[in-house]
Amino acid sequence: MRKGQYRFVAGFLLVPVALYLIFVIWPYIQTFGYSLTDWKGQSQTFSFVGLDNYKALFQDDVFLEAIWHNIQFLIFIPVITILLALFFAFMLNAGGRSRAGGVQGVAGSKIYKIVYFFPQVLSLAILAVLFNAVYRSDGGGLLNGALIKIGLVDADNPVEWLNEPNVVLWALMVAVIWQGVGFYLVLFSAAMQSIPRDIYEAALIDGANRNQSFFRITLPLLWDTVQTAWVYLGIVAMDMFVLVSSMTQNMGAYGGGPDHHSDVMSTVMMRNFLYYGKSGYACAMGVVMLLLTLVLSVVTLRATRRERIEF
């Protein structure tokens, strides 16, 4: 680097780094401080309780179950979303009938690309309203209404989708995946278009079929983008606060039902923070969440590390 360049770069970084320290790092430190107290959230009077909150945390069945739910989201949401998005993106870009002229997408791929992106423009709150209408527990719900019409469900006993312990997590995942696929489809499409055509054409000449060209060419060359998608979807899976709190059975506040079967870390934390007034305890949960996400992001980046192909 040329002389003086570091000073130049540092000059630009000063303000953003200062902002980051004040508004992100300092609150983390504060949170950790509060997590060692019995703070109740509404005033500045509290006393120091050491690690009691953390000890209690590991005996709190609701919180432990919530971690487990986050882990399930963490496994299934990225995997399913990425697989679906990859499949659709491949079909749109390189899945058409192979012709002499080269590689192209299925018929009408331009329209599909736009249509698939629609759900992404909806806010989470609207998504919740929409899927509440889909899962509504009486004949007025989209699913129940349809199933009753075709005689699969008894009108007197409609399925209470979001009130079924074994269904509720999946019902939430469907909503998230439905919304996410379109975005990652566009992301993967863009990446696929930058893969040189001649690689495909060469493969085609060598007699590769669709599967082979996908697994041998497309996927390896997309790996970086998939990795990025994984991290973003990880963020979604670690959060889930909006959908859980506005769609599921109410456990005092912030959803989480039935019987805490859909509680995630963030809903349990907010319930303790505001509704039960156990704010210090909730801060301990926040610290645990931070540690888990840190571990997670390190693991994700390590596990998906691959050799790069330059083109």
Binding site: F23, V24, W26, P27, Y28, Q30, T31, Y34, Q44, D224, Q227, T228, V231, Y232, G234, I235, M238, D239, F241, S266, M269, M270, F273, L274, S279, A282, C283, G286, M289, L290, T293, L294, L296, S297, V298, T300, L301
Partner: peptide, 24 residues
């Protein structure tokens, strides 16, 4: 750079709501 910033985001995003609430 993209990856690293994304990883940072993973750490920061879920924490945000808590932080704004906690920082009294």
């Amino acid at each position: 750079l993209i990856k690293r910033s994304a990883a940072l985001g993973l750490v920061a995003a879920p924490g945000m709501s808590l932080l704004s609430a906690c920082a009294s």
